[in-house]
């Protein structure tokens, strides 16, 4: 087995293990930390695929910014392990049904999907590099790119509007 394949199996094992631990762990802080570990192993996968830009951006945006905000919120909520609200059986059954359905859908999609064969000799290993990515984004996909940035701008303005103190509101 060559080294990149063994790396792939190790990373996949780590990804799945930490993703399962996100769901299983009782302490929400531990869940968040396992989620960060999951993002890290996903970045490892990107590096194995020679997509360094995607790996770095994944770390900066998800692990570096979004998960920090998750941690913020959870730390302020001050959740204790013994205060976990008990769920009744109906909720548990409903959750099991929904989760099972999603699993069946995913499995069906996986069975139906055809993985296109590729020719390793003609495959351009530089396709995930930042230069080719930039060319692709700013030439072929310029309109979707700009639309996505407008969407983000609208979301940002909305967040500022929601967070703004209104006139007459209490000043903390």
């Amino acid at each position: 087995m060559n080294s990149s394949v063994s790396f792939f199996y190790f990373l996949s094992f780590l990804t799945i293990l930490s993703a399962v631990m996100v769901v299983v762990s009782r302490n929400p802080i531990h869940s968040v930390l396992y989620l960060i570990l999951t993002f890290f192993s996903l970045s490892g996968h990107y590096i194995l695929l020679n997509a360094q830009f995607l790996a770095a951006v994944n770390i900066i945006v998800y692990a570096g910014a979004i998960m920090v905000l998750f941690l913020f919120v959870i730390m302020f909520l001050n959740m204790k392990q013994d205060q976990e609200e008990t769920k009744n059986n109906l909720t548990k059954i409903a959750a099991a049904v929904v989760g099972g359905t999603v699993f069946v859908i995913l499995f069906g999609a996986y069975r139906k999907s055809v993985i296109p064969a590729f020719n390793p000799d003609q495959f351009d290993s530089q396709i995930g590099m930042i230069e080719s990515l930039g060319n692709l984004l700013f030439r072929d996909y310029l309109l979707p790119f700009e639309l996505a940035s407008i969407l983000l701008l609208v979301a940002m303005v909305g967040a500022v509007m929601l967070g703004k103190r209104e006139i007459g509101e209490r000043h903390f």
Partner: peptide, 19 residues
């Protein structure tokens, strides 16, 4: 080829030790 982004990513992670 992503050196500066790497530095930036590591700096972004520096928060975790403190938090």
């Amino acid at each position: 080829n992503i050196g500066i982004l790497y530095v930036f990513g590591v700096v972004a992670l520096g928060v975790y030790g403190i938090m």
